[in-house]
Design a protein around this nucleic acid. Sequence first.
DNA 1: ATGGCTGCAAACACTTTGCATCGGC
DNA 2: GCCGATGCAAAGTGTTTGCAGCCAT
Lengths: 142, 142
Amino acid sequence: MVDRLREAGKRLTAERRLLFDIVSKNPHLDAAGIYKLALEVNPKIGQATVYRTLNLLAELELVDVSPLGEAHGHYEVRADDHAHLICVECGSVREIPPPDGLRTLEDLEGFEVRRTELELIGLCPACAKKRREKEAPQTGDE
Amino acid sequence: MVDRLREAGKRLTAERRLLFDIVSKNPHLDAAGIYKLALEVNPKIGQATVYRTLNLLAELELVDVSPLGEAHGHYEVRADDHAHLICVECGSVREIPPPDGLRTLEDLEGFEVRRTELELIGLCPACAKKRREKEAPQTGDE
DNA sequence: ATGGCTGCAAACACTTTGCATCGGC
DNA sequence: GCCGATGCAAAGTGTTTGCAGCCAT
């Protein structure tokens, strides 16, 4: 994470460290939850910092914003793609890592699927092309 | 849709018809976009009605709220599960229906996937059980 | 020492709610 | 005719922004 910040010419502050740390250890918190945990460590951190930092980390692709069905966006550190089992009733989230992952329905272990979302997020052909043109061989990373 | 409303003891109004129709024909609009289209047909429809109706339709499981990566929630009529190709650059959304769907990567036709989200939305075992207990044979549908 | 980052609070955008009226059943 | 649904506008919630001081570089 340090490297990525440096790369992007951003500064490494205690707040950023803290927030990234919280997101790492708590995969499915929303901004409010992250803020709350942050307050316990640094009582005078501001929510603006939380939002700014999460946006920054998302831009640097260090964390992902996971939409999580009904609820609001939650944050988690970028990792191997995995499935989310999201309960519409209690909001609980279970993760299924990909290797041992979703090979059979039995892996769901009693979870009752109502609907699924498969989102492939990236660049459409046109934008991918534009980006390649715009981008110098080594420098650019947004 | 009419039936589902009836079932739930809800009334069939022109506004609900209109909004459902708009969502049907425009799979990836957000609330604001839906409202805008609705205004063209019924200039005095209120946004509150749009929100209330969309929430109602979502509750009746007639439409889904699709989180769509970076953007805000979008609405679409419930249909066969399909994948979304979401461009982070221009925000375009392409749908891939399941039968002809994502069997090979070539189906992506040049889309450059950066990350994927697989969300299985439903009831965790505990809540599924609770719901079965609470639910009378015929009456209850929350 | 400098410019980016932070905290604070105001601004903003989106969604929900209260109430009187309207209209489906 | 009754009770739910609507339209309007105000309230609520979550997120962003402006600015002065602070701190990583």
